[in-house]
Simulated assay, not measured.
Amino acid sequence: MAKLISVRELKIDIPKEAQILAERMLSDLEKSKRPVLEAVKTSLDNSFYNPKVGYLTPGDKRVRTELNVSSVQKLARVVFMLEILLRNLDIGAVNTKRELYYICKGLIKNDAKLRPLDFEDQVESDTIVDFIGDMLQVYREELNCFANDRGGQTYSQQLVVTETMADGEKATIDLSTLGTAPFQPKNKPQSLRLKARKKIDFCLVIESEGTANTLQSMGFTKRNNCILMGAQGVPSNAVRGWCKLIEEELAPPMYFFGDLDAYTLQNIFRTLKAGSAASLIRNSHFSAPEVRFLGVLPEDVKKYDLPFYKVRESDPAEARALKKAKDALENDPFFLDKKNKGLSDILRWLMKEKIRCEQQSLFSVDPKDPIKMEKIILEKIRNGSYV
């Protein structure tokens, strides 16, 4: 099997740590003690935000699972899944979470002794994979478990990417030579170095991949020395890591443009900028702390007379979004930090006005001008109209 690229320099030996864990569990059982597994608690109440650090970090809280009648299946599943992951590491095999679920189903189907460990659905097996990562404090990729590639389609006339393969060979990708095709970062770790043929004036991350593609088709990157990227909703690890790499290696001003609603601010922009509570142990490598929120801003709605939707509290999904916004203002350390007051104020405005305005609404400003959205975006950047 080919050698794989690492996300980072790993400070622990995963097989060795797993062996220590298994031997400790066995020793406890032999001494009639109840084995205990502990993992980092990846939730908002164990999240801390320091603007000097730039991303959410974990506190000291742990999820503690002690062997008893109700937890015996979970502990057994952890050992079962860990053995599969260790085998993959040993032979250099890789899998997605979906594939791991079916590997488990196949092993269980062919061994009656394993039937009590069976998973009803993939959510159950995904939870075990996540628990193992949080327990060992390693990334999923370091267990050779990779997500599907999603988002991050990138266009530029100035960006040149050099990728070093695991065998040492190098490939150079000049984005200006790709025609209509974008460059897309992988969720599988890559060793990339970036170079700009000319100074990059800015990097623009658009929430909607389709709208990013529209801007590109209308010549956005030909008229601007920039990097244009489509996030495709909540940013994947690939998108988050790619934005961080652009920040670190080229340091252009980075702007995010998306919908004006609570979901975009909390789940999409916050995840891109500072990571998430669910991925506390990995936010250091998968966040872009310098990205700014370009819009849609509340003042844009009035200035450009943008069409919007009323948020109906009678709708369960919209009511849930409003509740989450209220919870974020009260409990999310990112929104509680005074440095992010501008973003918190937008959330408060959304809760008060109960509206949502989509990024594509800019196409309504001058329907006969196909590049009006580009003009507005550039105007906002020039005027400092961002948070």
Rank of each mutant, 00 (worst) to 15 (best):
R223H: 12
Q122M: 07
P370T: 07
G168M: 06
S361Q: 13
D174L: 02
T214F: 10
E141R: 07
N187K: 04
A2T: 11
G151A: 00
R270I: 09
M351L: 15
R320N: 15
K16T: 14
S279F: 07
E141S: 14
K109P: 03
K338F: 09
T271S: 06
E247G: 03
V129M: 01
V123A: 00
P182L: 02
L86V: 10
Y102Q: 03
Y263C: 05
P289K: 08
S217D: 12
V40I: 15
E9H: 08
I281Y: 05
K11Q: 14
K3T: 12
L347A: 00
V365M: 01
S27V: 09
P370R: 05
L117A: 06
P189C: 05
G295N: 06
A317H: 08
T264P: 00
N383Y: 06
W242G: 00
K244A: 12
Q137R: 13
K339N: 12
A212E: 00
R312S: 15
T221K: 06
Y55T: 03
S43Q: 05
R115I: 10
N224H: 14
Y49F: 15
V301P: 01
E163R: 05
G295C: 08
C226S: 14
G152A: 12
I12A: 01
T214Y: 13
Y55G: 01
L329K: 02
A231T: 06
L178C: 07
A288E: 05
P307K: 02
R34T: 10
P289W: 08
I281F: 03
D332I: 01
Y139R: 12
L85T: 04
M351T: 10
M135G: 01
R140P: 05
S314V: 11
R8N: 04
N46M: 10
M1D: 10
G59P: 08
P252Y: 04
M351W: 04
A238C: 10
T96G: 04
